[in-house]
Design a protein around this nucleic acid. Structure first.
Length: 912
RNA sequence: GCUGGUGUAGCCCAAGCGGCAGAGGCAGCCGACUUAAAAUCGGCCCAGUGGGGGUUCGAAUCCCUCCACCAGCACCA
């Protein structure tokens, strides 16, 4: 079997070497050309690439090469997200130093990636564990510290007992560690935070200004930021003029329905509210009970709400009523003020709690007729609400807030679910936090001249307890940059998501030594035009990177507001119904795949099997199909090589008889601009393919692409398909002979394929349908080769074959670069395929002379007509009614109406 | 529970505006080639679009409703 395959084992390494030696994908800023920054999320160097990598890098390379062919100056870099726990765990298990382990893995993975033949500018490769990289984020850390954007505080953190470190909120999934799946425990700890909440509003607002992002990612980010508008106000404590309780609500209109109030169990005010020792003990017991619950138990839905009534009471400032006060587990200290006003009439949680504790329920919104539910959260008119009665909810909210402000009790307030980003990690293999603690000066940032604070090599990694750096005396003991006295270094390292928050900027000038990046280079390349990566980073990396970019902007380092203009979130690679994993035993090894089928096949199947945003169901038979297709292309070219080489180039018409239409204007030749059907044109190309990149990427000379001279158009206008239409007898299945000559029909297929592939790539990233379009073209190529032998003049035939083959190679190039580059060269081209312009469709070739129109009777297909394009409706109607196959269905009935859809169908509506 | 997505042939997937349910691939079947098989070339079979209702001359597509699966969020006041 393999002996029949084209020689990919020889071709692929050869072209990889050639591209590298020519530095074909090495780029520099070039103001004269439009730029395109194509970026795939860089990998963690785990040691081996997996199919997910193959998929994402195949997508990225397709876009990068496509943009090259469209005339862009393409930045397409690759590097390594090289800090992280696996390196440290490997060190603990096998005694290998994390640095050695990491760099060996990088070498392996680089070799593997190179075998895929991706158009990276390898000269820009970087690894985030290199001090020349992380020194810049240390500098930025200091700047953030100066501006209060980085700060240290004690807090309850998410502690992963297995990873022995803290996790940010974003890194906890269902109460478990995102990396190792261990149950996360709360822990009181000092740690460093980035003040991402200061950017909550901007991060949220820009979610509406990122049209190139998938809606589901934006939804997840909006969700995560969790903005809610409401009011905050004080509830006086009965008999305690010194005390009041501040609550947050999104429903200030419902204050008259507040029949009790609730504090989070750990609320600091609780201690001051307890009356006697007995109550103190009860509170302590209740708190202990709540604390015992694990995070996972607390998250379980529909748990009964537990609470403890305190002896203290508070006043509803609106109604003046004294109401009960509780502590309860359903109120969280971490959100709002940690205290709520309870409105059981309009809040289901409060309703549940009120029922369980026999508390009053007051309705403050009129229910719709027939309402049978419990708490009512819908729209309606205010009732039982004093001065708010009769208002709508929205109006009542405003009036209630005004009232609070007037009486000095509270104000309007916005709350976020988003918390500050905890970046301290109690681990070794990360970027040191450039801060020292001096007995005299307190906490001081490292002096800029002393950066980078280099991670020491000689550290004992036991995997237990606190930061490994704490035991490295040579690291910890240092000089205070302020007073020169003794100081201790911070021993936490930064979350590795900090490195990945700006690597796309470093790629712009990866060897820049005077700063984080060269400003001019960043201004040229940024923002990333197309970012590609897995959906799993929807709120992790992608939110952090957006935040960090805005911080850098506000530090005056970069101009862009957002790092990624467009985002493509590719789906997972699935096999046998499950995500590929070692434990499931359904892993496909890319190396082996490439050895067996070649990189082009691996890439082609990855792109063909599913649209990129969907999960890809891996299928070994499908891979063989992809391989078979490439063999088919290979065989055709090789079998006809001499003829193709001798053929009049596609660029020079063979049977040119001078009658060919004059070259259309360049605008008309734009791939997207040409209309497929020749029917009424769509919105002129604006949002279509051509529109996206009109920066002077000139398409190939359209006129030059004409091959055949035989032009039937000008000849006398035929009588529209009357004779043909009535010719065949019987059912609508019988084929109608086309009057169009095979050469012209084939040429239209070629150019329709150009339009389809271009559209699929440009608009929807529907690479799978783009591939199928090329497969169709190749099928047509085989068919034309045999069928045209005695029906098309020799010269025209050869020119068409060559045009078809070259178009196939050009269209397929970004999908399968090696085999296409090789065949391109075999055809006699000296220049690389990827320096060729992307093919442009010739509108002349796309023009249709006649179309098949379906004839329906009462919605069922009863016949077909071949008529001239844009034939008059009346004429088509007459032809349809007169059609032999249609008449029997109409004969015994009365024609009520005839619907004619130009160039598509006729529907004859009848009644008996 | 809320939000988003998906549901089309044995399987993976197509069908911009409502207009012939099928482009492509896989699997299967039949020919051709072959001593034979593989490979190759050519051809064929297969669903009425998750269920129900509605709008329409016409619905995979629009509306209502229900179901299944996937993902995200979830005592967030």
């Amino acid at each position: 079997m393999s002996s029949d395959r084209y020689p990919f084992r020889e071709i692929e390494p050869r072209w990889q070497k050639a591209w590298e030696e020519r530095k074909q994908f090495t780029v520099t800023e070039d103001a004269s050309r439009p730029k395109f920054y194509c970026l795939e999320m860089f990998p963690y160097p785990s040691g081996r690439i997996h199919m997910g990598h193959v998929r994402v890098y195949a997508i990225g390379d397709l876009l990068a090469r496509y943009k090259w062919m469209r005339g862009y100056n393409v930045l397409h870099p690759m590097g390594w997200d090289a800090f992280g726990l696996p390196a440290e765990n490997a060190a603990i298990e096998h005694g290998v130093h994390p640095a050695i382990w990491t760099y060996e893995n990088i070498d392996n993975m680089r070799t593997q990636l190179r075998r895929m033949g991706i158009s990276y500018d390898w000269e820009r490769e970087l690894a985030t564990c290199d001090p020349s990289y992380y020194r810049w984020e240390q500098l930025v850390f200091i700047r953030m510290l100066e501006r209060g954007l980085a700060y240290r505080r004690r807090s309850t953190v998410n502690w992963c007992p297995s990873c022995q470190t803290v996790l940010a909120n974003e890194q906890v999934e269902d109460g478990r560690c995102w990396r190792c799946d261990s149950e996360v425990a709360p822990k009181e700890l000092d740690g460093w935070f980035f003040k991402i909440t200061a950017y909550a509003d901007e991060l949220l607002a820009w979610c509406d200004r990122l049209p190139g992002w998938p809606e589901r990612v934006l939804t997840m980010q909006r969700n995560w930021i969790g903005r809610s508008e409401g009011a905050e106000f004080d509830l006086p404590v009965v008999g305690r003029p010194d005390l009041s309780l501040r609550v947050f609500t999104t429903r200030p209109d419902t204050v008259f329905g507040m029949t009790y109030a609730v504090l989070a169990p750990e609320h600091p005010l609780v201690d001051q509210l307890v009356g006697d020792a007995r109550e103190r003990a009860a509170v302590a017991a209740f708190r202990a009970e709540v604390a015992r619950e694990s995070e996972i138990e607390r998250l379980a839905a529909d748990r009964p709400k537990r609470g403890l009534r305190l002896s203290a009471r508070v006043v509803n400032p609106f109604s003046g009523a004294a109401i009960p006060l509780f502590i309860a587990d359903y109120v969280l200290m971490g959100y709002g003020t940690g205290a709520i006003m309870a409105v059981p009439g309009e809040d289901q949680r409060d309703w549940d709690f009120a029922k369980a504790h026999g508390l009053a329920i007051v309705e403050t919104v009129a229910r719709p007729d027939g309402w049978a539910g419990e708490a009512y959260t819908g729209d309606g008119v205010k009732i039982n609400s004093g001065f708010l009665d009769g208002l709508t909810i929205a109006a009542a909210k405003r009036k209630a807030v005004d009232w609070l402000v007037e009486h000095g009790l509270g104000e309007a307030r916005v709350n976020y679910r988003l918390r500050d980003w905890g970046i301290s990690r109690q681990r070794y293999w990360g970027a040191p936090i450039p801060v020292l603690y001096c007995d005299a000066c307190g906490m001081v940032p490292e002096a800029e001249a002393n950066l980078p604070v280099v991670l020491p090599r000689d550290v004992q990694l036991s995997g237990k307890g606190a930061s490994p750096l704490a035991d490295a005396a040579s690291f910890v003991n240092a000089r205070c940059p302020g007073c020169g006295g003794r100081a201790r270094r911070e021993t936490d390292t930064m979350d590795t998501f900090v490195e990945s928050s700006w690597y796309f900027l470093r790629y712009c000038s990866p060897r820049h030594e005077a700063g984080m990046f060269d400003r001019a280079a960043a201004e040229y390349w940024m923002p990333v035009d197309q970012y590609i990566g897995g959906i799993e980073h929807a709120v992790l990396h992608l939110l952090y990177a957006r935040f960090y970019t805005k911080v850098l902007r506000d530090l005056g380092l970069v101009r862009v507001d957002e790092p990624f203009t467009a985002l493509l979130s590719q789906g997972m690679v699935i096999k046998d119904g499950a995500k590929m994993s070692k434990s499931k035993g359904n892993v496909v090894d890319p190396d082996e795949l490439i050895r067996t089928f070649g990189a082009d096949t691996a890439r082609l199947f990855s792109l063909f099997a599913a649209p990129p945003e969907k999960d890809l169901d891996w299928n070994d038979h499908g891979v063989e199909g992809a391989s078979r297709f490439l063999n088919r292309v290979w065989r055709f070219v090789l079998a006809h090589l001499d003829a193709l080489r001798a053929a009049p180039g596609a660029a020079r018409p063979a049977a040119a008889d001078g009658k060919g239409a004059s070259p259309p204007g360049p605008g008309a030749a734009r791939p997207g601009g040409a209309d497929r059907e020749g029917a009424s044109p769509r919105e002129p190309g604006a949002a279509r393919a051509g529109g996206a990149d009109r920066e002077g990427v000139s398409p190939r000379e359209p006129g030059a692409a004409r091959a055949g001279g035989a032009d039937r158009e000008g000849v006398s206008p035929r009588e529209p398909g009357v004779a043909r239409a009535g010719g065949a007898d019987g059912g609508g299945a019988s084929p109608h002979p086309s009057s169009i000559d095979p050469g012209r029909a084939f040429r239209r297929t070629i150019h329709e394929t150009i339009v389809r592939v271009t559209d699929d790539i440009e608009h929807d990233f529907h690479f799978n349908t783009a591939v199928s379009a090329v497969m169709e073209l190749v099928n047509a190529l085989y068919a034309f080769e045999t069928a045209s032998l005695d029906r098309v003049p020799h010269g025209e035939r050869l020119a068409l074959l060559r045009e078809a083959v070259e178009t196939t190679l050009l269209l397929l190039g970004p999908f399968c670069p090696h085999v296409t580059e090789e065949l391109w060269a075999q055809l006699g081209h000296a220049e690389s395929l990827f320096r060729e312009p992307w093919p442009a469709a010739d509108p002349e070739a796309l023009r249709k002379q006649e179309v098949t129109v379906v004839v329906q009777v009462d919605g069922r297909v009863r016949g077909r007509l071949v008529v001239d394009v844009d034939a008059a409706d009346d004429r088509v109607r007459q032809l349809a009614l007169g059609d032999d196959r249609v008449r029997p269905w109409v004969a015994a009935r009365t024609v009520e109406k005839v619907v004619v859809v130009p160039n598509r169908l006729v529907n004859i509506v009848t009644r008996s």
